[in-house]
């Protein structure tokens, strides 16, 4: 659902033109929007807006809403940053804008 670019990493875009750099930017934005939507969902939605509803479910010794607001959201945040880094590095390579070694 995010960018279809990095699914085919072997396929390199040869030249850096205004068009490809625009495609690169659009793919970057799509990735960012998807990840930010998850960011918003795990913190503001699960941790604040529907926390009372989620509290009726249990997750180990936690009420689920309490877990999201005190621990779960933070674990998701870490995951999101690493997914972003991984996908962006692939995008950089695919569009030939990576910085090399």
């Amino acid at each position: 659902m995010s960018d279809n670019a990095s699914n085919k990493t072997s396929e390199k875009v040869p030249e850096k033109s205004a068009d490809t750099s625009n495609q690169y930017w659009q793919a970057n934005l799509r990735l960012m929007y998807v990840l930010l939507a998850i960011w918003f969902f795990v913190s503001f939605v699960c941790g604040i807006l529907i926390v009372d509803y989620l509290d009726q479910f249990r997750f180990f010794g936690f009420k689920l809403g309490f877990w999201f607001s005190h621990q779960g959201s933070i674990l998701f945040f870490i995951l999101l940053i690493f997914i972003y880094t991984w996908r962006m590095n692939l995008l950089d390579k695919r569009y030939g804008v990576d910085e090399g070694e």
């Binding site: 990840l35 960011w39 940053i81």
Partner: peptide, 24 residues
């Protein structure tokens, strides 16, 4: 108790914004 979560989420969630929107 539970309301303290505003600091836990607030002081970590900003790093997602930093990594995705500003730092690079």
């Amino acid at each position: 108790g539970a309301a303290g979560a505003r600091y836990l989420m607030g002081w970590t969630g900003g790093y997602v914004l930093l990594a995705l929107c500003l730092a690079p």
